[in-house]
Design a protein around this nucleic acid. Sequence first.
DNA 1: CGTCAAAAATGACAAGGCGTCAATTTAAGA
DNA 2: TCTTAAATTGACGCCTTGTCATTTTTGACG
Lengths: 269, 269
Amino acid sequence: MARLTPKQRMIRLRESQILDLARPMIALGGLAALSMDAIAHELQTAKGTIYNHFPNKEEIVLALAVQAVDRRLELFNHAVMMRGTSRQRIAAIGIACEVYVDALPEFFRAEQIIRHETVWGKTTEKRQEILRNCEGRCMHTVAGVVRDAVSAGDLELEAAHRIEDIVFGLWSLVYGGMVLETTSPSLVDVGIVDSRAAIRRNCNSMLDGLRWQPLYDPQSYSTWVQQVRAHLEANCPPTGLVVDREISQTQSENKPKKLAKPVQSGQEL
Amino acid sequence: MARLTPKQRMIRLRESQILDLARPMIALGGLAALSMDAIAHELQTAKGTIYNHFPNKEEIVLALAVQAVDRRLELFNHAVMMRGTSRQRIAAIGIACEVYVDALPEFFRAEQIIRHETVWGKTTEKRQEILRNCEGRCMHTVAGVVRDAVSAGDLELEAAHRIEDIVFGLWSLVYGGMVLETTSPSLVDVGIVDSRAAIRRNCNSMLDGLRWQPLYDPQSYSTWVQQVRAHLEANCPPTGLVVDREISQTQSENKPKKLAKPVQSGQEL
DNA sequence: CGTCAAAAATGACAAGGCGTCAATTTAAGA
DNA sequence: TCTTAAATTGACGCCTTGTCATTTTTGACG
């Protein structure tokens, strides 16, 4: 981590500029709206230069997803550090998810898009590993709360019910709910008027079903939500910047990687 | 519903041929892998002819999604018709989802793809309405079981907990779980070894949390799963064909619709 | 300060896909 | 048989991504 030459700093800067330009694009219209030409044009460089930073569009999305999970983890960490019962702390993570989706929708979008084999399959192993790492740390944070609950005696695990599976359940419930909320043709038609409230209520039902003490109480839960939300929104302003993550020293390390035969040359879903 | 001229039958036939060709394509590589040229070529017609049937790629995906939800509904109906407690019948729907995803992955994929604003936004109102209708009927089927449970006294709804929200919860949990299972970079790395078992377990936790009687019992649940799965797989062979759904009498009704300015001309996600 | 090899930037180009439309062929009913 | 509406055709316009031979810049070293 020696000092950087001006040139190197220039390159780093451009990398983050690329991502800053790309983020609103994919938020607006998915991968198809992410135009390499447009980025090059706005940055006043040649397209080839963009390709020196990222071997293809998909890799940009992956880079965005990494930023996204970083931001999410940050919120999670703030959430679990709050003082309260184990049940309150796990609830805080749920609120963190809501804050995340509401305050950083562009990041959330990146996470959704990278979650497609067709996109994922065109990215480099190197960056994939980075994302896996981030996701792993997120899981670890959540699992930690569950473990604490067990230690504290708030939660008794039945045989054949693993901590990871519980985390997976909450994850499914929240992620699935958010995705359906965003993309379902007919949520309102079908009678779901306040999907957020429904998600929260359902998470609580699940935890009640595990007999995670203390059981759901609308009153106290509601005030806790207020508290957490205020705390998180105060501490994690959407404008906060992410530290640049260094993936290679030189551009040339990125260049020649040549994917093992791009299955589809077109764009995506 | 008079008789069809040979020509009209020809057209109907081609429509289903288009869908049959498109299904494996999107299953393999998403919307990008759905090639209009390839379909035209394989059908030995001109590309323009395909565009007489569907105004764009997205509309084909939507048509596939309609087929998909039809198939899903079919399975749901078989599931809820089984004799058992209300809790067993709701569990049967969960199993139906598993059978659906396993036996008809191409259909599931279509449902996933249409669930993107960028894809959805390019389809016609007419067919959108059809899909909403199908989804509504699915919801209705599931909600019916919940209502039965309430009637039978197996389930007491607290105030501010609506039936639709419970259905939404199960939907989120199962859909979210299945999506994560399919697309998560690192499920195994992170400790989820049997995601299906986890989904089932978590659904049961949620229902337990609602105090939906009788509560989860591993033994009896497990045997019920066997039964349902066998029944569904016997009654709904994957090869079963869907009745053609008639959307318009003549092709020319489809043709001139001209979308209100395609925001993105490229493909998707 | 000058030299030079390596790194980075450039942009014209190949490849390939979608959707269009004027012209043509086919079908159906009188 | 004739007429008119419907259906088919396929070349074409337009847009995109990703490549790569060439040119420019950088910075280490004498």
